[in-house]
Amino acid sequence: MTRERDLWMLGLDIIAAIAMFIALYMALVWVPDAANLTTPVERAAQHIFYLHMGVNVGAGLGFLVTFIASIAYLLSRRRIWDMIAVSSVELGVIFATAVLATGSIWARPTWNTWWTWDPRLTTAAIVWLLYIAYLMLRGALEDSAQRARFAAVYGIFAFFSVPLTFMSIRWWRTIHPVVLGGSNPEAQGGFALGPSIRLTMFVSMVAFAILYAALLGHRVRLEQTAEAIERLKEQLA
């Protein structure tokens, strides 16, 4: 690993830490409660929204980058694209787990249930399972070239579940609020996006995007180290 790259990664780590601190401060201290929510429990739980949107960005980026890296791998057959794809899926799954967990915890005081088979929740759970299956598929294949090829094809098709999840609250009847580009009159626990709420949401989304980029750098380095070991083993054999 080059020293220059290590410095870049350290710089990104520091920026991510600062961005996360600002996002947390804004979400927990700076932003006022949503005006239309009536009970203290609902008002406090609404602050989960900023975290929920942030981890959503992490998951979305994880799966989008996998989609792009999978196409790039199939076109170029360069190993680095496969490394980026698997690293990004792993991060996407971690963030998607956080999306489901934070959403479920927020749903309890808002919808009076931890889980409901609403179109958004169902499609989000399907996305999560699809990408866990991606990791299982990789684990089941021995040959590295075959593994990379199969995973790339899977990574491209699996991605179509992501825009479907995004659009599910716009296309189907749901109780999940529509935050970006629209509204849902049947939503339960929705709130108006005032300037301070909008700004805090935006800062949280940017902070998680930076965190995703920093973690991706470290995860790809892990893949590169593992490959260096394989090469050394081949030399020794």
Binding site: P40, A44, A45, I48, T97, I105, W106
Partner: peptide, 18 residues
């Protein structure tokens, strides 16, 4: 307090994962 239980729980779960 019951009002912050869910908020604290959500942040704890997400940060534990990361």
């Amino acid at each position: 307090e019951e009002s912050v239980e869910y908020l604290a729980g959500a942040f704890a779960v997400a940060w534990l994962l990361v």
